[in-house]
Design a protein around this nucleic acid. Structure first.
Length: 833
RNA sequence: GCGGAAGUGGUGAAAUGGCAAACACACUAGCCUUAGGAGCUAGCGCCCAAAAGGCUUGCGGGUUCAAGUCCCGCCUUCCGCACCA
């Protein structure tokens, strides 16, 4: 009876035993010093926001990363596998309002809870390098970087239209506005406000950020494409149109300067400064323009900017085309964006769809200036937007190709100083000011005498005060804390005011992974030597939702740090993996849908191993995963089978550790062959394909084979040495996926030391090789029969064996065989007429 | 509208031009029992009463001895971008 009881797989008991051991042994998952001589491997998962609860997306993300880390440990690498907390941000302030708990206390309690969850899941992190971004030890370096960027003119202040989220009561960066809505409040429309804000000059790196993407071949194409589109490089020409009867010029941006002889109007954005000037002198125009702006604002707030119909107003003024002096009317149009290019365009209706639509609506002249290159068709349908064409109606430029004309027209503009070739980006500078409390204070001081004065380095960190009243009223909560605001100017010692905005939390996550390399440093953000050893990150793993937020900011920050001499790498991560979402019943898990599955529930019911392994088994990691609790139960039952299998034969396996090897035959050979095939498959998958779902399936197949051979196993047909190899390797192969169970079984097999420090098994190709194959035989590509042949059978043998087959004979009788295709090791296909 | 990904049993999925549905879940039948969210055996794409046989990877074409896989067109779903001059 006692023996039977031993065979019960009880994850609750087994897992808590190992969790205690691992907590008592922090060295187990610790990175080693550079001198250890092993090759380094830095595997990183995106750090979570400490909401207080891990969700299934985290479990999936971290199960993937942990499996990889464990595999690399077993491959003998010096692995850095850290974890931290993206701990600043608005939810802490909301919680403070709701529960009357200070943000700091709330956040730290959440971190403690989530850390417990991670430990309960058995995730192998090096907690000695833990980073918590809301602590002064960390955020002081945000301030330090801010000052360095200010010195290099990469941080600056300007008044501009900014995105304002009424729910966050703060501004948002462009990247944080999704479809006109706040990235945190998907039902909240973002408003536009004019405010003075701090910006990081990410556009200074626009081109490098773009070109670097070509070299990031370890990143998914999807992410690279998204970043390319976001940066939106566009080569074109700026041209000045003179304003008739005025000294003012109107600078337009165009990618098609070759069509400029077809420009029949100039179009200004409603917010263009010249428009306000015209409107000031013309009340009717002002009313019309206000209407345009109004309509645009309302469209934006309704969330369908793109759907709005094109409208415009004729200003009654004229501009002069600098190439031929032609007089063209100036319009204000609602489809011209002030914050792209120069906020003004030349309108060429014949060769641009939007201009065509607009000109038709208002009866503006449409003049063809490009003819198709092949000239088969003299007058193709308008608008004709192709760039392979020949200029017509363009004075001395007639006959040039579009490309030639662009070059020449640019040269002429430059020579006569009315324009130049230029590059425009869609990417805007990163607005980092936030009118919130729970973030990094911006280390600047406003002095009446000296203006903007940076906080001297030796006065860092500017500490975030406790005991601040949080309100949702808007305006920085810090501005209502006199002890924080009122300071003396570092330059003149006169009275001055601190900057009261805090930094965007994406600042924190832009460089946290460098801090892991040297987390305790109190003299610098990190030691450059530590960074040069560990960077770039070998594998970064996270959700695709950060493709153009965190991941573009991080790339920018790395380049800034490189130019500061802190790091040598150009890019933060050599390889990026974006895992799919975890969904339930076909929908994203969310509280409002009531389909949230709690990781804690899963762990309590089925154990951490089963929960993690299911997360890997249910779908390939890059695809969405539909969470089915029955599936977790299934994996748990499988782990139970493994547990009982190993426990039952552990005594033989232990005896086999010192037994003499015997040449395997019969069932031993069969099982060893399957084992070595499984080893080869899993090893290959870790190297790149990452189809962990089929890795788990392969392990299940092997275990099924072992179980099917149970009669022979219990009859002692497998020698002890072989039994040891079978069970020992099984445990090793499962170790990255089920750390608790494999640790227990490793010990049960008489092994000492941590299983994750044991060497990853090697597949012997000789042993893995089948000696006979089943080969499909087809007639005209349709399956007829299956033959067995030796693995090394040549074409002639395969053909002969196939033709001898009765089924085949019956089918080809009386028909003429035109051809026989033989693919060694694959198939025989008889082509008959 | 543009760009990308996907579409295979009741479900999650597998198959890198060569036997479609591995591995699981669910279900069905049976066995066992210490009655457990347990274990074991068998069945399980569709059509046909069964067998024999036929059919089957969103739809339609094509390439090939051979197509879930490659090419062309279309449909659907999801994701990203969306007046970017």
């Amino acid at each position: 009876m006692a023996e039977e009881k031993e065979l019960r797989y009880d994850p609750a008991v087994l897992e808590s035993k190992w969790q205690e051991r691992w907590t008592a042994d922090p060295a187990l998952y610790a990175a080693e010093p550079e001198q250890c001589g092993k090759p380094k491997y830095y595997v990183l998962e995106m750090l979570p926001y400490p909401s207080g609860q891990l969700h299934m997306g985290h479990v999936r993300n971290y199960s993937i990363g942990d499996a990889l880390a464990r595999h690399m440990w077993m491959r003998g690498f010096n692995v850095l596998h850290p974890m931290g907390w993206d701990a600043f941000g608005l939810p802490a302030e909301n919680a403070a309002l709701k529960n009357n708990t200070p943000p700091r206390q709330w956040t730290l309690a959440n971190i403690a809870a989530m850390k417990r969850q991670m430990q309960r899941l058995g995730l192998g992190y090096d907690w000695a390098t833990e980073v918590t971004t809301c602590l002064p030890e960390y955020y002081r370096w945000n301030q330090w970087f801010f000052l360095r960027m200010y010195e290099k003119n990469l941080a600056y202040r300007k008044k501009s239209k900014v995105n304002w989220c009424p729910d966050c009561a703060t501004v948002l960066a462009n990247e944080q506005v999704i479809d006109g809505r706040c990235w945190r409040h998907e039902d909240t429309l973002v408003q536009q406000r004019e405010l003075v804000q701090w910006f990081f000059r990410i556009t200074a790196y626009a081109n490098e950020l773009l070109e670097g993407l070509d070299k990031l071949d370890g990143w998914p194409d999807k992410v690279r494409t998204m970043q390319r589109n976001w940066i939106g490089r566009s080569e074109g020409t700026e041209v000045d149109f003179a304003l008739e009867g005025d000294d003012e010029k109107i600078r337009v941006f165009t990618t098609r300067v070759d069509t400029i002889f077809g420009a029949t109007s100039v179009q200004l954005a409603p917010e263009h400064p010249l428009v306000s000037r015209f409107a000031a002198a013309d009340p009717v125009l002002k009313a019309q323009v206000d209407h345009l702006i109004d309509e645009q604002t309302r469209a934006r707030e309704a969330g369908d900017v793109g759907a709005i119909e094109k409208h415009g107003v004729d200003t009654g003024r004229y501009a002069l085309n600098p190439y031929n002096g032609e007089r063209v009317p100036i319009w204000v149009a609602n489809y011209i964006l002030m914050d792209y290019g120069t906020g003004a365009i030349m309108s060429v209706p014949a060769h641009d769809e939007r201009d065509f639509e607009f000109a038709n609506k208002y009866g503006i002249e449409i003049r063809r200036v490009i003819a198709p290159e092949d000239s088969v068709q003299e007058a193709p349908a308008l608008p004709f937007t192709s760039e392979s064409g020949i200029l017509i109606n363009s004075g001395s430029y007639n006959g040039l190709t579009c490309e030639q004309a662009q070059k020449q027209l640019q040269q002429v503009a430059a020579r006569n100083k009315f324009g130049k070739a230029t590059v425009t980006y869609r990417l805007k500078d990163w607005g980092v000011s936030r009118q919130r409390y729970w973030g990094t204070p911006i280390p600047m001081i406003h002095c009446e005498r000296d203006g903007l004065v940076p906080v001297p380095d030796d006065q860092l960190p500017v500490l975030l005060p406790d005991q601040v009243e949080i309100t949702q009223q808007g305006g920085s909560p810090l501005s209502r804390v006199p002890a924080f605001v009122n300071v003396t100017c570092p330059k003149c010692s006169g009275p001055a005011r601190r900057e009261t905005d805090t930094m965007d939390t994406f600042v924190d996550s832009s460089w946290y992974f460098y801090r892991y390399a040297d987390a305790k440093n109190s003299n610098a953000p990190f030691n450059p030597n530590a960074a040069s050893y560990w960077f770039p990150i070998d594998q970064y793993i996270g959700g695709v939702e950060h493709a153009i937020l965190h991941l573009i900011y991080s790339r920018f920050w790395t380049k800034v740090m490189r130019d500061l001499g802190l790091v040598q790498n150009d890019e933060p991560a050599a390889r990026l993996f974006t895992q799919g979402m975890v969904i339930k019943d076909g929908a994203k898990m969310s509280k409002s849908k009531g389909n949230v599955v709690s990781p804690d529930d899963m762990v309590v019911r089925y154990g951490a191993d089963a929960t993690r392994m299911y997360a890997l088994f249910a779908a390939p990691p890059d695809r969405d995963l539909d969470w089915q609790e029955d599936g977790v139960a299934g994996v748990s039952r499988f782990l139970g089978r493994v547990f009982r299998l190993v426990m039952r034969y552990a005594p033989q396996a232990r005896a086999g550790r010192t037994a003499q090897p015997v040449a395997p035959t019969g069932v031993s050979l069969k099982l060893l062959r399957k084992l070595h095939q499984t080893t080869a498959k899993i090893t290959l998958d870790f190297a790149g394909r990452w189809h962990f779902n089929t890795c788990v399936a392969a392990i299940m197949e092997f275990v099924n084979d072992m179980q099917a051979a149970d009669a022979q196993l219990s009859a002692g047909e497998v020698p002890a040495h072989t039994m040891n190899e079978l069970l020992r390797t099984l445990v090793l192969l499962m170790a990255p996926f089920a750390p608790f169970l494999t640790s227990e079984l490793w010990e049960e097999l008489g092994e000492t030391g941590a299983v994750l420090r044991a060497a990853w098994p090697q597949s012997d190709p000789q042993l893995a090789r089948e000696d006979e194959l089943e080969i499909p035989v087809q007639i005209n590509g349709k399956l007829v029969t299956v033959i067995r042949i030796a693995v090394d059978a040549d074409r002639a043998v395969m053909e002969a064996v196939a033709l001898r087959d009765e089924k085949l004979q019956a089918k080809i009788a009386g028909r003429s065989v035109a051809k026989i295709i033989v693919v060694p090791g694959k198939t025989v296909n008889v082509v008959v007429k």
